[in-house]
């Protein structure tokens, strides 16, 4: 009887460790939503945690959202980097992950990336994501901001995993709302329909004045007696080249990085809301 229970306990321990080894690569006891500032209800936290976990596992890259009341004297970026490093976040042996930090004291936000997430989220993409969530944060709608953040992470990670360079890009992913989309489609549809019906309508009309008398020119009667092409003058205008916009493509796929207090490399940026 004793033997059997020992075997049971051992299998249980084995199972749980192998489970975490498979799915997190390290001790995966950490919550992906750490709501120290208590901005969400318990139920909302639970839902969001499930959402973050499923996205994290799908892309093998952890997405963490942290809210705090104070930064304890650090900058938002430092705090986010340290939170990520010292709590042991990150997926797999490279600790791939992206962390969104919200601090309520001075209304700071920071996004910190590590490992694969550094290349997966280039600067332009992080700027775009920040734009998308800051307005919701300012309004105090944290639930919407966090859920938008997780959706964007999901989309950009999907793109990054599929692309050869391992990075997503913002430029090729411009958004277009339903209303302008319908209006544009309808506008183009009307223009094309108008052109086609106009051609069909034009078939009905065959009576028109002949503007010229080309058919009555006597054959080979054109005789140009004097032909003179006189160069008068030239004028040159120069216009300053617009700042090279073609480099924006490479810009959007560049990820700037910095070193955290633990000496590890992080990407991301911070701001106020």
């Amino acid at each position: 009887m004793k033997k059997r229970s020992i075997i049971l306990i051992l299998t249980f321990i084995l199972l749980t460790t192998s489970y975490s080894a498979v799915f997190a690569g390290s001790d995966r006891e950490l919550l992906l939503i750490v709501d120290n500032a208590d901005l969400l209800s318990d139920y909302e936290e639970e839902l969001l945690d499930m959402q973050l976990e499923s996205i994290s596992e799908k892309h093998r890259c952890e997405i963490i959202i942290v809210t705090v009341n104070s930064l304890d004297g650090k900058t938002a970026t430092e705090y986010a980097d340290d939170f990520f490093d010292y709590n042991g976040y990150g997926y797999g042996e490279n600790d791939d992950g992206i962390l969104l930090l919200i601090s309520m004291e001075y209304r700071d936000w920071a996004i910190s990336t590590h490992g694969f997430a550094i290349t997966a989220f280039p600067d332009a993409v992080i700027d775009y994501m920040a734009d998308e969530i800051v307005s919701s944060l300012s309004e105090g709608n944290f639930k919407r901001a966090f859920s938008r953040f997780s959706i964007l992470c999901d989309e950009f990670l999907t793109e990054a995993r599929a692309s050869k360079t391992g990075s997503s890009s913002y430029d090729s992913r411009k958004t277009l709302g339903m209303t302008p989309r319908i209006l544009i489609s309808l506008g183009i549809g009307i223009v094309i329909a108008f052109i086609i019906t106009s051609i069909m309508k034009a078939q009905l009309k065959s009576v028109r004045f002949q503007p010229a008398a080309d058919s009555y020119i006597r054959k080979n009667s054109l005789n140009i007696r004097q032909s003179r092409d006189l160069y008068l003058y030239s004028s040159i205008t120069k216009r300053a080249k617009p700042k090279n916009t073609s480099s924006s493509g490479s810009h959007s796929s560049r990820s700037s990085t910095h070193r955290s207090s633990s000496g590890r490399t992080h990407g991301g940026r911070s701001g106020k809301f």
Partner: peptide, 24 residues
């Protein structure tokens, strides 16, 4: 590297001659 240039060369063109029309 810094500027786009446009040069416009102006010409005065003369053509004179004749052409015949039959039974317009």
């Amino acid at each position: 590297s810094n500027y786009n240039y446009t040069e416009t060369r102006h010409y005065l063109i003369m053509r004179s001659g004749s052409i015949g029309y039959e039974r317009v």
